[in-house]
Design a protein around this nucleic acid. Sequence first.
DNA 1: TTCGCAGATGCAAATAGTTGCAGATAGCCC
DNA 2: GGGCTATCTGCAACTATTTGCATCTGCGAA
Lengths: 147, 147
Amino acid sequence: MKTGSHHDSSIEQRLHGLRQRLTPQRLLIVSVLEENDAHITAEAIYERVREQYPYVNLSTIYRTLEWLKKLGLVTETDMGEGSVCYHWAEKGRHHHLVCQKCGRVVDMDESLPCSLKEALLQRYGFDVDLSHLAFFGRCESCQSQSD
Amino acid sequence: MKTGSHHDSSIEQRLHGLRQRLTPQRLLIVSVLEENDAHITAEAIYERVREQYPYVNLSTIYRTLEWLKKLGLVTETDMGEGSVCYHWAEKGRHHHLVCQKCGRVVDMDESLPCSLKEALLQRYGFDVDLSHLAFFGRCESCQSQSD
DNA sequence: TTCGCAGATGCAAATAGTTGCAGATAGCCC
DNA sequence: GGGCTATCTGCAACTATTTGCATCTGCGAA
């Protein structure tokens, strides 16, 4: 299933430029991720891809997500919900604060993690890859309550 | 298998004081963790406990680790090695910087994460539970090298 | 346009961790 | 010391994810 040149997206061109193979499965997985504003699980991507490509295998989804992660095109976050979440990296870098009491998720921008990153580079010479962090704890409403 | 009173450790007394059940399995798991200075996986704890309690089940190990985590007696860290690591919480709080290139692990004390924690409390009103963090990236030696 | 091959995929098995259920038991109360 | 019960445990099944292997295929080179 080779898309016509007039359908080629910029991501296809970029991947082609990086000498990466573009299989039908990969193109579909990438488009599901690009179209998805929220985080998405591997299982949900699998369901979406199967709509157009019924014989795709779940292990291919996982392998492709790993490949995209390695290329820096996707970020992966464990929100503590039992499955890891994925997010198209260009849809904005941010992080999360997950309340362990009520489950509320507060988004956090990059400024504080960037400060930490710079401090770690200074102190330890270590260059942290701040892809997509999730910190667990208690939100404002749940702090006064005990367990 | 009830330990004699002269064998009761302070942790047994504390757990008893918290109205927590002390089963033979739990006592053994706790002692393996207390004796272990480094991080340890669930599987390794299982092997150690089986030496003295052959019929213990791996699901009991996982359940007990979850219970100890909830009590704040153990911390859990994913060092990216395929299994989560556990550490007796009183053996010192620290965090890790894991190099994705060479695998080297740099220990980090609490001061920088504490700064982040305070900043998050100020900015978002969110009280982060800094139990045992692991940040991934590149160490000093591996930064100049490409993938 | 065809060919060859490095790498992708599907399949099934494996791994780390979780869960439902029935039976066992720690420990409190009498 | 014995009884009772809430909770723990072992077992087997399950889930999310990874991996080995054989076959397929994207795509660059001729």
